[in-house]
Design a protein around this nucleic acid. Structure first.
Lengths: 346, 346
DNA sequence: ATGGCATACTGTACCGGTACAGCCACCTCT
DNA sequence: AGAGGTGGCTGTACCGGTACAGTATGCCAT
């Protein structure tokens, strides 16, 4: 059951049938109706998408690669908002969004074997094998939240500036013993700063911003790693320094994310401390729950939706006029949002 | 730059090059290495996915269609957990997950034009145009959370039984004036029961379950529609009956979702009522936040992750042995979880 | 010698479309 | 009347692979 079947049935050429479906202006309305009617009668549902993708050189869908197990993409509020923005922007153009596991299975390597018109690469690290396949395929790509890659458009957030602003805020409040709960790799426990070069780009930038503000101020730093970006990981990480005698205990915490910050705040409360009087807490992202947390969380806002929209728009341009090399590097602003989880050091 | 380019360069047949990439056991290791080396040297990245999809009849990705604007899929906790489960199950088989907008744009109709091996249809209503395309394509499909479709596998949750259990619970506690905050369509205000036949299947089932328990008990019902499944919609909907004089005011609420329930509880508090003393509140889904809400929410648990896993597994089977018609209809259990948001009627 | 059987590679026949240049009839303009 | 344009359909040449049935060669047992 192909175009030819219909063509034979009506005694017209295969091209005419193809045009009836794909380029209505190429034949008379009367003939087109007959073609469509015949197709319906014979149970032909229209041109085969796979064949069409091959012939047209376009499959109607773009890919998205994440670092972590894909699972993460749906449990983290920042990630889901990013996804929502992408899907919104994408539905404007009628394209699909294909989530690509970064892990090969058997002989099926998603980033190598799935037809795509282009892809977004989110927080993957430049040397990921999955991403290598996309590059080898010479697909239009846009990199988001990771080290800019030469020759490709990139969208980043001013993590460094935001982190610096957050740290300055604490310094201005008089804090000099400060804990950092960051996210180096997938290990917990006290962080080894030597692994920083391997950390995600976002981590690197935030760390750099914090240090830029804290070191000149002579702050004493305690750096702790959180296993992942969740409340429980933040809770656990905070445990590393909450037990210290008061004279040594940090008076403020800079957290990699709002969820980690909330976990740390809870740990402080459970240790009998009051936030912000005994411990100031600063998050990152300004997720929806940050404003309604108790106390409302001081944090660094990033516009996740805009990140998704810009990245998708950039990719669409790169797909629409291939050949031209696009290499825009966008840096979206961040903004310190001071709420009630920070207070002057005593 | 195709297989033939490499074949000519080495003086072997195109098939041999194809086999070097796709069926390594079909040629000697030595020749395979030479083929691969030559490919790398010439900058050939492997068989073209679109061509391969056409020839093999498989594109390596499955589709997912949602009712609402795709956006919803990422903001609702139940939906995201469902997605997470799907992606987890899917990454086992190395396939991608393509999110399909249900709205056509220009001449690109996602469900008609994107190559797919099969698709999951989630809460779409059987007569959606997007879904029609999938059916016409004769793709393997699995329907989830919607009216079972003859000839296809379906996965549903025992919404009706769960709702009945929730309503019984209230009846057992002595409540006789009961409000229902449901989700009929996209209008707010007092609900018109006449529109029930057009409501989503899930809504129909929950309504049926509630009524089954409440009507025999002679309860007086107030049915209100929530605009969407959010706290603010629940808050607003609860306003419709919280202002009634105490003798007429419902003493308990059955909500379509946990978020709606939480909104209603907040509205009650803001109206000077105490939950559960003045108003018992029951949610639905047992989302993560239900247990930690204040007070912890009595609700009906459904296993969203299992729903995702089963649906995906069913789809995989349907794809793997096409031809055989699979028509399993699975009904997953629900369970009433009694917490502290319900109390005996005064 | 001879049949049987791997192993390694090749040839042909698809998979199901689209792009684009042509062709022909008919109409319009001068 | 002839040039020029236009609407409507067709033919050919791709798009870039895979499946499967050969064919040739070497090796072993009979």
């Amino acid at each position: 059951m192909t175009l030819q079947t219909i063509a034979d049935e009506l005694g017209v050429s295969r091209m005419t049938v193809s045009n009836a479906f794909s380029r209505p202006d190429q034949l008379s309305a009367e003939l087109r109706d007959r073609v469509l009617a015949t197709a319906t009668r014979l149970g032909y549902s229209g041109p085969d998408p796979a064949a069409r993708a091959l012939a047209k050189g376009s499959s109607g869908t773009i890919g998205l690669v994440f670092t972590d197990r894909l699972h993460y993409a749906f449990t983290d509020e920042v990630a889901t908002h990013f996804l929502a923005a992408i899907s919104e922007e994408l539905s404007e153009s009628g394209r699909g969004l294909t989530l690509l596991g970064s892990k090969a299975h058997g002989d099926l390597v998603p980033t190598r074997d799935i037809p795509l018109d282009g892809a977004l690469v989110y927080a993957c690290g430049a040397s990921s094998e999955a991403v290598d396949w996309l590059r080898r395929r010479r697909l239009p790509l846009v990199f988001v939240d990771q080290e800019p890659v030469e020759g490709y458009p990139c969208v980043n957030v001013d993590d460094r500036g935001g982190a610096r602003a957050a740290a300055c805020h604490l310094v201005d409040l008089g804090h000099r013993r400060i804990a950092i709960i960051t996210r180096l790799a997938n290990e917990s426990g006290p962080a080894d700063l030597a692994t920083l070069p391997d950390a995600a780009y976002t981590t690197q930038q935030r760390m750099a911003g914090w240090f830029e503000a804290l070191q000149p101020a002579g702050a004493v730093l305690t750096v702790v790693n959180a296993q992942d970006s969740t409340e429980s990981a933040g809770y656990e990480a905070a445990g590393c320094f909450l037990g210290l005698p008061e004279a040594e205990r940090p008076t403020a915490v800079l957290a990699y994310s709002d969820r980690i910050a909330l976990g740390a705040a809870q740990a402080a409360r459970d240790a009998g401390l009051v936030v912000p009087d005994d411990l100031s807490v600063v998050g990152f992202d300004d997720a929806g729950f940050a404003a309604t947390a108790r106390p409302p969380l001081t944090t660094v806002r990033q516009d996740v939706a805009r990140k998704g929209h810009e990245a998708t728009a950039l990719l669409r341009v790169a797909i629409d006029d291939r050949g031209v090399q696009h290499t825009d590097h966008r840096l979206l602003p961040t903004e310190l949002v001071v709420r009630a989880s920070t207070a002057p050091a005593r």
